[in-house]
């Protein structure tokens, strides 16, 4: 009987059943005969009854894969990844809107044309970074915003590279 329980694929217990790892040890042994809690005892019985058909392994068992995780998909480097909120519509041309959620990775190198979180005069800004002959340029994706050429005396740094934008449809 115990073997039958263990052949149940993990996480595939039928509704109403107790997953096998939660069954107290005592319930399997002799003690269960004198078990004081009737409700639990009946549930254990139901579990054992339900487990018998699973003694024949499901042909799908070998094909059980892990769940796919959005976290894993969006976050390559958990230690250096931070979320930020967008304010304003200066980047709407690249599909980044007011209130969107940015996935920012600080570990990535910057490249010409990538979208970055920059710190300009002590404030965060999300813009496209361009390396031009005159120097670094921050470009918005909106016709109303002019390019910002970074002057050497300006307090400027790149905080991180934007890898994803999460936009609610």
């Amino acid at each position: 009987m115990q073997a039958a329980i263990h052949s149940l694929p993990a996480g595939r217990t039928a509704p109403g059943q107790v997953p096998s790892r939660q069954v107290p040890r005592a319930a399997h042994g002799l003690l269960s005969l004198t078990y004081p809690n009737k409700e639990l005892f009946h549930r254990q019985c139901a579990l054992l009854r339900g487990a018998v058909p699973a003694g024949f392994p499901s042909p799908a068992d070998d094909y059980v894969e892990q769940h796919i995780s959005l976290d894993e998909h969006l976050i390559r480097h958990p230690e250096s990844t931070f979320f930020m909120r967008v304010a304003g519509d200066s980047m709407r041309g690249l599909g980044i809107f007011d209130g969107d959620l940015l996935v920012v990775d600080r570990s990535l190198p910057t490249a010409h044309g990538c979208v970055v979180i920059a710190v300009l005069d002590g404030e965060f800004t999300v813009k496209q970074l361009l390396h031009t002959a005159e120097g670094q340029v921050l470009r918005a994706a909106h016709p109303a915003y002019a390019d910002t050429l970074i002057k050497p005396e300006q307090d400027f740094s790149i905080w991180g590279v934007v890898r994803w934008n999460v936009h609610k449809v």
């Binding site: 979320f83 909120r85 404030e123 965060f124 800004t125």
Partner: peptide, 13 residues
């Protein structure tokens, strides 16, 4: 709490 609460994230404009 910039890294642990959804409504307290840093904001970039």
């Amino acid at each position: 709490r910039y890294t642990t609460e959804w409504d307290e994230l840093a904001v970039a404009s």
